[in-house]
Design a protein around this nucleic acid. Structure first.
Length: 591
RNA sequence: GGAGCUGUCGUCUAGUGGUUUAGGACACGUGCCUGUCACGCACGAGGUCGCGGGUUCGAAUCCCGUCAGCUCCGCCA
C-alpha cells in the first residue's frame, strides 16, 4: 500500500515516485496550490497539490479536511532554498501529488492534536484515540515498549523464564481491597483479580524454575492518585537460592541496562542505601527524594528544660521537637520569606496533620519568631550552633509524637522543595531503603500488620525479639526509590512452614482463616522449598519518571479517572438482569 | 470517608450584581488567493454560562445543595 513512511522521506528520495499514507495534520488552501501536511507515526511531510501538475488530485484535495486518512502517490521534489521548512525533519523536500485517495473521512476533531497540552484531560480521555495520535503519547507508549523490551532482553540473558500466572485468582483478605469476579459455575463463589502474582511466583520457585519473571498486570481496588491506577503493570520477578544482595544486584543490573538501552544514560551503580529508620528520621518518609538536602533535625534536647508550654507538653509525653532547616546552602541562592509565605507554611503543615508549626528566621544575627521572646539566650545559642544557622536561614519546627512530627516535616520538605524549585528534572536519584521493621502497629484494627507483606522473612539477627518485642524485629525487605517515588519493593521470603504459620498468627489471623486462605500455600512449603526472594518494579511509574511526566495516565493507553471510570468506554456500567442472574448476583443498593 | 482547586460556543479563555443582544482567539462553514508551513483577506454560523434550588427589581457573577474532573489526606499487605 505504501512505499515509505512520511517522516523518513528525505533528499535521498528526490525524483522517486512514492506512495505514502497517513492523517491530514493540516491543510492550507491557496486557491490554486493546496498544501497538506501528512502525518503518520514517523513524522510529517508536506504534500503539494498543484492543479498544473495534476488537476484531478487537486480537485480531491479541496474536499480533504483535518484528520482525514488519505493515500498519496506522488513524486518527491527538492524544495527551493526559499521554501525550505527547517522546523520539520522532512522540510527540505515535498511530495507532488499525482494521485490521492481518501481512505477515511473524519469529523472535525474536538481538539487540535498539537494543542493537546492545553486541553482538558477529560476531553482527551473521551477521545483517547485522537489524543494517542499526538507525538507525546506516541513517544510515551513507545518508551514503555522499549523498557519492556529491554527488561525481557536483560532478564532472559540472566536465566529468567517468563511464566504467566492466573488473572482469575484467589481472594485473600490481607492487603489491598480485591476486585471480585463471580463464578457462574460455582454459585456464590468469587475469584479475585491478583493484587500481584506473589504466591504464584513463590510457588514457581518451589517448582524448580529457579528464576522467573513476568510483566504482570495487577489490580487493587483502592483510591486513585496521579501515580496510582486500579490496574497497573509490574515487572515481577522471583529468584531461588539467593540472598538480599543477589536480588539487589540483579535489579541494579536491570535498571542500569534499561537506562543505557532506552535513554543512553549510564547510571552510577550500586545505588545508595539508607536504613528505613534513618530515612524516616532524616526525610520523614520511606521514599525520600535525595536530589536535594533540607534534612530534618531532632532538636528536642535543646528544649529539655524549656518553659515553653507547646514544647514542654509534647516532650513530657515522650514526643519530639523536630526542625526542618531551609538555608541558602540547600536553596542555592539568597532568599527571603514574606510573612504571607510563612503563614502559608503553617497552613500547609496543618493540612498534613500538624497541630501547629513554629517558624524562626535569622535576621541581623537575631532569631525572629513568634516564640522568640520565650527563648532563653542559652536556647538561642544552642539552636544557632546545633543547626549551624546563618543569616536568612529559616527553621520550621513541629512538636509532636516522634514519627508524626517527622512525617509532617517530610511532607513539608517535599512541598518546599517544589516551591523553591530544588528539583532537578534531569537527575535520576535512586536509593534503596533497607532494614524495614517486619511489623507496624495498626491503630485502627489494634493489631500488628506487615510492613511489606506476610511472606517477608524476618532478619534472623532480630528474630529472638519475635515474641517479646515484635515491633523491633527487622525484615529482609527492600524498596527501591527514584526521585521520591517508590518504584519497587521486594523481600527475601519465608521458606519455612512453621515460621510462616507463626507470622500469620501474629498478624491476628484465626487458625481457620489461615487454613482457608493460605492452607494450600503452607502445604506447598512442606514439600521442599529453596531459599528464595524477589521484587516487583512498578513499570508505569518507572516509565513516567523516565519520561519526566507528571502522571501515570500519560504512560497508560486507556487509563481511568480518579473515580475509576473509563471516559472512553464508560466503564464500569450496569449489566442486564440476565447477566446478573447467571452469576447469582443481586444488586441490593446501587447508590 | 475528608480537604482544596476547577467547570462560560467544538477547544482555550474574558467577564466578580445592571452598558451582556455573554466578548475574544483558535477550530468550523462559504467566497477570494500559486509557495504556505501558526498561510492571508472577507463574510458567516456556533453558548441550557455543569445541573438543581435560593437571595435580589435584576444572577455567568452572591448563597446552599448536587454532579463531574484534577491535586492531596485517609486507603494502597
Amino acid at each position: 500500500m505504501r512505499t515509505h513512511l512520511c517522516g523518513e522521506l528525505c533528499e535521498a528520495q528526490v525524483g522517486e515516485e512514492v506512495s505514502i499514507c497517513g492523517w491530514v495534520n493540516k491543510r492550507r488552501d491557496h486557491g490554486k496550490l493546496i498544501f497538506v501536511d501528512l502525518r503518520d507515526y514517523s513524522g510529517i511531510v508536506q504534500v503539494v497539490f498543484d492543479p498544473n501538475f495534476n488537476s484531478f488530485s487537486h480537485e480531491i484535495a479541496k474536499k480533504v479536511r483535518g484528520e482525514f486518512v488519505i493515500k498519496v502517490d506522488g513524486v518527491v521534489k527538492r524544495r527551493d532554498e526559499a521554501t525550505i521548512n527547517y522546523k520539520i525533519k522532512t522540510g527540505k523536500i515535498e511530495v507532488f501529488a499525482k494521485k490521492v485517495s481518501i481512505l477515511s473521512e473524519a469529523e472535525t476533531p474536538p481538539f487540535i492534536i498539537e494543542n493537546r497540552e492545553n486541553v482538558d484531560e477529560t476531553t482527551r480521555l473521551k477521545y483517547r484515540y485522537i489524543d494517542l495520535r499526538s507525538e507525546e503519547m506516541q513517544n510515551n507508549l513507545r518508551l514503555k515498549h522499549s523498557v519492556m523490551m529491554a527488561t525481557r532482553e536483560f532478564l532472559n540473558s540472566k536465566g529468567f523464564v517468563e511464566i504467566e500466572t492466573p488473572i482469575l485468582a484467589k481472594s485473600t483478605p490481607e492487603g489491598a481491597r480485591d476486585f471480585l469476579v463471580p463464578s457462574r459455575l460455582n454459585p456464590g463463589r468469587f475469584y479475585a483479580l491478583p493484587q500481584s502474582p506473589q504466591l504464584f511466583k513463590q510457588i514457581l520457585m518451589f517448582s524448580g524454575f529457579d528464576r522467573c519473571y513476568q510483566i504482570a498486570r495487577c489490580f487493587r481496588d483502592e483510591d486513585l492518585r496521579a501515580d496510582r491506577q486500579p490496574e497497573f503493570t509490574q515487572i515481577d520477578l522471583e529468584m531461588s537460592f539467593v540472598e538480599m544482595e543477589d536480588v539487589i544486584e540483579t535489579i541494579e543490573g536491570l535498571i542500569y541496562f534499561i537506562f543505557k538501552k532506552v535513554l543512553g544514560k549510564e547510571l552510577k551503580v550500586p545505588f545508595e542505601r539508607i536504613n528505613w529508620n534513618e530515612s524516616i528520621e532524616k526525610y520523614g518518609t520511606d521514599k525520600p527524594d535525595l536530589r536535594y538536602g533540607l534534612l530534618i533535625r531532632d532538636i528536642s534536647d535543646i528544649f529539655g528544660t524549656s518553659g515553653l508550654k507547646i514544647f514542654k507538653d509534647v516532650l513530657q509525653k515522650d514526643g519530639k521537637v523536630k526542625a526542618l532547616v531551609v538555608n541558602e546552602h540547600s536553596h542555592g541562592n539568597s532568599m527571603e520569606f514574606t510573612r504571607r509565605e510563612l503563614d502559608e507554611f503553617v497552613n500547609v503543615a496543618k493540612s498534613f496533620g500538624a497541630s501547629g508549626l513554629v517558624w524562626m528566621k535569622v535576621e541581623n544575627d537575631k532569631i525572629q519568631s513568634p516564640i522568640a521572646k520565650f527563648l532563653s539566650a542559652k536556647e538561642e545559642e544552642e539552636l544557632t550552633r546545633t543547626l549551624d544557622l546563618k543569616e536568612k536561614d529559616l527553621v520550621l519546627i513541629v512538636a509532636d509524637e516522634s514519627s508524626k512530627s517527622s512525617k509532617i516535616l517530610g511532607s513539608l520538605r517535599t512541598y518546599i522543595a517544589e516551591k523553591l524549585n530544588l528539583l532537578n528534572k534531569d537527575e535520576f536519584k535512586f536509593v534503596w531503603i533497607v532494614n524495614f521493621p517486619l511489623f507496624e502497629w495498626d491503630e485502627k484494627e489494634n493489631r500488628l500488620s506487615p510492613t511489606h507483606h506476610p511472606f517477608t522473612k524476618p532478619d534472623m539477627h532480630t528474630i529472638n525479639l519475635l515474641e517479646s518485642d515484635p515491633l523491633k524485629v527487622k525484615s529482609l525487605a527492600y524498596d527501591i526509590v527514584l526521585n521520591g517515588e517508590e518504584i519497587g519493593g521486594g523481600s527475601i521470603r519465608i521458606d519455612d512452614a512453621k515460621l510462616q504459620r507463626k507470622i500469620f498468627k501474629m498478624l491476628g489471623i484465626e487458625d481457620e482463616e489461615i487454613e482457608k486462605n493460605f492452607g494450600f500455600f503452607l502445604k506447598s512449603l512442606e514439600y521442599g522449598v529453596p531459599p528464595h526472594g524477589g521484587i516487583a518494579i512498578g513499570l508505569d511509574r518507572l516509565v513516567m519518571l523516565l519520561g519526566r511526566l507528571e502522571s501515570i495516565r500519560e504512560v497508560i493507553a486507556f487509563p481511568k479517572t480518579q473515580s475509576a471510570v473509563c471516559m472512553l468506554t464508560n466503564s464500569p456500567s450496569e449489566v442486564k438482569e440476565e447477566q446478573l442472574k447467571e452469576v447469582f448476583i443481586k444488586v441490593v443498593d446501587g447508590s
